[in-house]
Design a protein around this nucleic acid. Structure first.
Length: 267
DNA sequence: ATGGCTAACAACGTTAGA
């Protein structure tokens, strides 16, 4: 059975539920992973998703900020919400889908942004980000040996030179500093992950999923970053079918600063 | 080099995003 997975940092699921529903009606992905839902589970707009056929839902929320969720048309057979760095903030949920012979484990992450100053000695948010990525690396080590798995989410790191509008000007900016990009590559390496977005878009080509709210004209200045990611383990390499970055979503009315990304897998 | 915007909330300034 072909499978489509979408990921989207929605920056408040309650404020933008109409945008999310329009996206789901147009694209009909089997699974949607959301980050920054900014609400507790009890305030998650479950009914709106259910109406569209997304009746399988796992929410890991908290009040006001952060928070992740998975909604699916296909059954979710297992789920786990993991805490990182000894905190109880809501930054991860994993689900198991395709419960038959070859189930797929799907991880949905929201990695800490890391604040402004890229120095862990003076900026505890940056220290938290690095510790979070280190913990991901250890926990997901050898992921490919365990079978089909997908990891998506807002990882808040743009690892490649063409993942930012200016590699040179971004080297000292949190999200593209060498310590972060090398650590993210180490997470990929340790898990045996395949960068599914770059499987389809060559690394020489610019690719962004986020544009700042602060630009007067996001499209004209086009100072984007690829902060959102979709990875798969090697058992899924042969099933990679297609990728869509829904850039136009950044131009919708009252948009998220991130756009949705859709990965399609063959049967 | 700076500043620019958006969202949540025991809310009308503060904290967070990145």
């Amino acid at each position: 059975m072909p499978l489509s997975i979408a990921t989207w940092n929605i920056n408040s699921v309650r404020l933008r539920i109409d945008l999310v529903c329009a996206f789901l009606e147009a694209e009909r992905p089997d699974v949607l992973c959301l980050q920054e839902i900014k609400c507790i589970e009890g305030n998650f707009p479950a009914g709106a998703f259910r109406k569209l056929g997304y009746e399988h839902q796992v929410v890991h929320g908290q009040k006001g900020y952060h928070g992740v969720a998975v909604v699916a048309k296909v059954p979710i057979t297992e789920h786990v919400r993991r805490g990182f760095c000894g905190k109880d903030d809501a930054r991860h949920v994993a689900v198991k889908i395709g419960g038959g012979e070859l189930p797929i484990v799907l991880h949905n992450f929201y990695v800490p942004a890391g604040g402004d100053e890229p120095n862990p000695d003076v900026n505890e948010k940056f220290a938290h980000k690095l510790a979070f990525l280190e913990e991901m690396k250890g926990w997901l080590r050898g992921a490919e040996t365990l079978g089909p798995a997908i990891l998506v989410g807002d990882l808040n790191v743009a690892p490649l030179e063409q993942d930012v509008w200016s590699h040179k000007q971004m080297l000292g900016v949190v999200s593209h500093t060498p310590v972060e990009t090398q650590l993210l590559e180490a997470v990929i390496e340790a898990g045996g992950w395949i960068d599914a977005m770059r499987h389809f878009v060559p690394p020489e080509e610019k690719l962004y999923t986020w544009w700042s709210y602060r630009a007067a004209d996001w499209e004209a200045s086009n100072r984007g970053r690829r902060l959102d990611h979709m990875w798969v383990t090697s058992p899924l390499r042969g099933r990679l079918l297609g990728l869509e970055v829904k850039r136009e979503a950044r131009g919708w009315n009252r948009p998220s600063d991130h756009v949705p990304v859709i990965l399609r897998l063959a049967a």
